[in-house]
Amino acid sequence: MDAFRCNQCGYETLSEKYYCPKCRNSSFSRLDIEGKGEVYSFTTIHIAPPKFADKAPYQVVLVQLTERLRVTGYMDEDIDIGDSVSFKEIQEGAYIFQKSS
C-alpha cells in the first residue's frame, strides 16, 4: 500500500495533500506500507447504498496501520476492536482487509 509522509513533521496520509495540515510544509515522501494492523473501530452496515445493497450486512473498518496512519477498508468477516487484520487487495477503489491468520 502507498501512503505519504510529511518530510518535516512526519504526518502520514493516504492521499497526497498540498500543505501538511499539521505544519504547512509542502514536501512529502512516498511511503510503502506493509498493510498489517489492528482494527481501531468498525461498523456492520445493514442499510447500504444501492451499489452495496446485495453485499449487506458487511463491515467497514478503520484500521490502525502505523502509529500515525489509519485507513478505512471493507471486510466481510465478523471482527472486533483490536483484531489483527491485513490488507488483501484494492477492489473497485476500496481497500479490502482480511483477518490475519
Partner: peptide, 16 residues
C-alpha cells in the same frame, strides 16, 4: 475517496 468505495455511509461513520 477509498471510503466511499468501501461502502461507508453517513450513519456508518457515526457507527464506527
Amino acid at each position: 475517496s477509498n471510503e466511499k468505495h468501501a461502502g461507508l455511509t453517513f450513519p456508518g461513520f457515526f457507527g464506527v
